[in-house]
């Protein structure tokens, strides 16, 4: 499907009922994806469109440079190794022109030097391939929020509000006490509402590389169980639903039983 087709559908969806589940994305976010691998590019575009972003893409160094100098974007997903040049040069060019775009580097070169160099040059975040879409989504939202909300670090979903700075959660202005990990888990769900999140992905996102074994996921179960109980008791509309025993989904269903 051509890009403008996606964008067309996007606007249709935007006007549709699903929009109410993502109130914090009231502004239409425009994203430029700079990635040379065709299949990966298409997959990422599919995902970004499903997340209701407007997406444009560039496939090599020169077209990317052209796009960033002509248009304005909210966020640029930047691959480092590109035909024709390095993504880091594009980054440098952007910073020299004092462009305000948030930049998220997505690179297959998961080396610490590149990460440090990229962040030094002014990138907002760095994500190594292969990544989970849920993770990508969380990072994009996080950097856009940092840039655009002008200090407002609250995420709101139905009657729940998360204050990221103070690491506090409120249900109808009443504080919900969560421990460190419960907060991280809830945050992950809040950035990916209404999406099926696999246990393994959740474990990896919240506990990082320390998770190495799929068979030790019982701890996820008990943590999520506690979190669900707290949400239920506090009268929150958002609830974490278990999906088929291997995943969870944050949704705004009133039905808390499952």
């Amino acid at each position: 499907m051509p890009l403008h087709g996606h964008i067309f559908i996007f606007f249709q969806i935007l006007s549709g009922f699903r929009y109410i589940f993502a109130p914090n994305l009231f502004l239409i976010m425009k994203i430029l994806l700079i990635e040379d691998d065709k299949k990966l590019r298409e997959t990422i575009i599919d995902f970004l469109l499903s997340e209701k972003y407007i997406v444009e893409y560039a496939t090599d160094y020169y077209s990317a440079l052209e796009k960033v100098s002509v248009y304005e974007y909210d966020c640029i997903l930047l691959d480092i190794m590109l035909p024709g040049g390095s993504g880091l040069d594009i980054l440098q060019e952007l910073k020299q022109r004092h462009k305000k775009e948030s930049i998220l580097i997505i690179s297959a070169k998961d080396s610490i030097e590149d990460k440090v160099l990229g962040l030094d040059l002014g990138a907002d975040d760095y994500l190594a391939k292969p990544f989970h879409f849920a993770e990508l989504n969380a990072r994009i939202k996080s950097i856009i929020r940092r840039k655009q909300a002008d200090g407002d670090t609250n995420i709101v979903f139905k009657n729940m509000r998360m204050d990221l700075d103070k690491r506090k959660v409120f249900i109808e202005d009443k504080e919900l006490l969560l421990n460190r990990k419960e907060f991280d888990i809830l945050y992950y769900f809040m950035t990916n509402p209404d999406r099926l999140i696999y246990k393994t992905t959740l474990a990896e996102s919240v506990w990082g590389d320390n998770i190495d074994q799929v068979d030790s996921l019982d701890f996820i179960y008990s943590q999520v169980k506690n979190l669900r109980r707290k949400l239920r008791q506090s009268g929150a509309i958002p609830a974490i639903k278990a999906v088929y025993g291997f995943g969870y989904k944050l949704c705004a269903c009133d039905d808390h039983s499952d």
């Binding site: 691998d37 499903s50 292969p130 990544f131 989970h132 879409f133």
Partner: peptide, 13 residues
């Protein structure tokens, strides 16, 4: 890494 990323992400979709 790239083919793995594609496969993983397709499954996620």
């Amino acid at each position: 890494q790239t083919p793995l990323a594609i496969a993983l992400n397709k499954i996620e979709l």
